[in-house]
Design a protein around this nucleic acid. Structure first.
Lengths: 193, 193
DNA sequence: TCCAAAATGGAATGAATGTTCCGATATCGT
DNA sequence: ACGATATCGGAACATTCATTCCATTTTGGA
């Protein structure tokens, strides 16, 4: 049997994810990765294929975690409106807590790779659909539990919430006032009343 | 007197703006610029300084036009709610019309340069303030004209609208359904009722 | 007409890019 | 203990990058 890997493949992938997340695809060089991941140049190529392959793996890893994270987050609460409030507040809080202000990896990558790399447009479309569906299902739960009026157009509300969520992820990269955005979240959520 | 420039400085700046807008800062090389702008390598450096200087000039040029454009757009209409509806619909329509799907240059640059280039965070903060103020002023006009209830928190509505606007600029780079987003705009605007 | 000044074309620079290759090293099962 | 096999360190590769330089061409005013 051969020599065993001296690093955890998943651990390194997580590091790569964080670096790509922070610096984006183009501004991250192989040298940056070698320095940051702490593994050998050759090991990087042997294990992950190359820059683009590593990026794709890191991006996939993020999307899975992100989707699962939000799904679980919404599943914890019982009140739907409070759930969305908490979700948006979490995005705000995350931006304050994260000293690197990385925002959302999916949003960042959408902006960076489109429109020039149409090959990944399907990924972004699917991500949007998954989130909108998740939001919609959650809203319908609220209707079933008599927390929300049944007569509203919850598909458009799901789209609205997701769009707002994306906007939040852009603006929270700048120096924003958390209080202002908490208020705007409340205003947004008033569409549920 | 020297030889006269064979190109219009503004015309070339506009071309540079479009290329940076489409491809972003890092993925646009000097060679790309030389090919696209149709001017000489040396002329580019003589006239604009360098890649970063040219980018800054192009970005400034965009922001001025963009701000003025939205300001004039809002000034044309008389009904405030209809004005916002038209503004958001314009963003949607622009995404469909623009075959390159460039989105918004400010949003793109915010995502691409932050958090690594904190030197330009002031620019983004100012841009946000200008737009929020513009939206707020417009809303207050609606109050004065008795089109809108006076009791609402219009500062938070301005923030909400601007955040949504940013989100739109992200999502409209993907393959979105214009109809869905028109509906979500209507839902958003219901906060004014 | 001639000269100063600016634009031009294209070569040249040196650093950084992604990727490949190789000899050395370390490890596991036999 | 040994050999097969994968990792490792680092050199080497060809491109591409932003930038600089220079000789040439073009122009407008004296």
């Amino acid at each position: 049997m051969p020599r065993v890997k001296l690093f955890s493949e998943k651990e390194i992938l997580e590091k790569a994810m964080n670096l790509f997340w922070k610096k984006g695809y183009y501004d991250t060089s192989i040298q940056d990765l070698v320095d940051d991941l702490g593994i050998n140049r050759a090991s990087l190529y042997d294990t992950y294929g190359g820059k683009r392959e590593l990026f794709d793996k890191a991006f996939s890893y993020y999307r899975i975690n992100n989707t699962e994270g939000v799904k679980k987050f919404l599943a914890t609460g019982t009140d739907v409106k409070a759930g969305f409030k908490a979700l948006f507040e979490m995005a705000i809080q995350q931006a304050i807590t994260d000293k690197e202000r990385k925002g959302c990896f999916v949003v960042n990558t959408t902006i960076e790779l489109l429109p020039n790399e149409q090959g990944c447009v399907d990924t972004f479309n699917e991500n949007r659909k998954v989130f909108e569906q998740m939001f919609y299902d959650y809203l319908m739960q609220g209707v079933k539990r008599n927390q929300l009026e049944p007569s509203k157009d919850y598909l458009s509300i799901a789209t609205l919430f997701f769009t707002f969520y994306n906007g939040l992820r852009v603006i929270t990269k700048t120096d924003f006032d958390p209080g202002d955005f908490s208020k705007s979240v409340d205003t947004l959520l008033s569409v549920l009343d």
